[in-house]
Amino acid sequence: MKPRPWRDAVQGLAFLLPSLVILSLFTYYPVLNAAWLSLFRWRIMRGEPSFIGLANYGTLFESADFWQAIGNTIVFTVGSIPPGMALALFVALLLNRPLRGLPLFRAAFFIPTITSLVAVSVVWQWIYHPDVGLANAVLNALGLESVRWLNEPRSAMPALIILGIWRGLGYNVIIYLAGLQDIPAHLYEAARIDGANRWQLLRYITWPLLAPTSFFILIIAVINSFQSFTQVHVMTQGGPVGSTTVIVYYLYQQAFQQFNMGYGSAIAMVLFAIILVLTVIQFRLLGGKVQYQV
C-alpha cells in the first residue's frame, strides 16, 4: 500500500479525539490554569482576581500551617510505609507456597484495599472511640491504658497511620507475590546445593531480586500517601489542632472552605512539584538499573 500521510494523520487524530478532548479539559488545561491562578489573589465570593505575582508562594512558604501540613504528610508517609512494606513482604513470603485455602487468605488481606475508604473510615472512627471503642478494649485486655486516639494531637496521627497500614497491606502483598513468583526457582536450587540456609536464601537471592518490586511499591505508596484526603476529612477534619492536616486537606480547606482560589492553586503547584520529582525518580531508576539479569 502507498503511504498516505494526510489521510493517516486525520484518521489517527479522529481516533484520539475523544480522549484528547477530555484529557485537555480536565488534566492539561487545569495544570496550566493552576499555574496561572497561583499568581492571583482571588477570594471567589468577593469580587475579581487581582494579580500579585509570586506573593502567594511567599505567603505559603512563611505560613506555619503550610509547614505543619507538609510535616504531617511526611510523618504519615514515614510512619505508614516502611512498617507496611515489611509486613507485606512477610505476608507475601508466607503466601508464596502451595497452600490450601490460598484464595481465602488472599481475600482476607485484600478486601480492605477495595472497600470504600469512607465506610472504612467510619468503622475505624468507631473502633477508635475514646470510651467504648474496640481499640481501647484490646489495649485494656492486654493490661494497657486507654488512649484517646482521634481526640488528642499526640495519638490522632498514629491512629491514621495504623488505618493506613491495614488498608494498604493487601495491595502491597499482591505486588510482592507477583515479584516473588518472577524469581526463577533454579536460583534457589543452585544456592541450596551450595549449602545456603533459609536466611541466606532470603538475604542473598529473594531480597536483591525483589529490589525493583520494593522500589516500585515504595514510590507508588509515597505518591499515594501524599494524596491522602478521605480518611482525614471523614475522621478528624484535620484536627485536633491541625495535627492531621495533610497537604491535600490543607488545599481543600483553603480552596473550598475559605475559597482562596489563588492561594489554593499555589498549594496545588507545590503538590505537583513533589509528585513530579517522585515520578521522575521512579522512571529514572526503574527505567535503567535495579533490574538484575538472570
Binding site: 488545561y29 487545569p30 495544570v31 501524599f226 489554593g264 492553586s265
Partner: peptide
Amino acid sequence: MIPHQMTIIPSF
C-alpha cells in the same frame, strides 16, 4: 505525572 488533586480547582 499529574496528581488529580492538583487539577480540582481549575476543573471546578
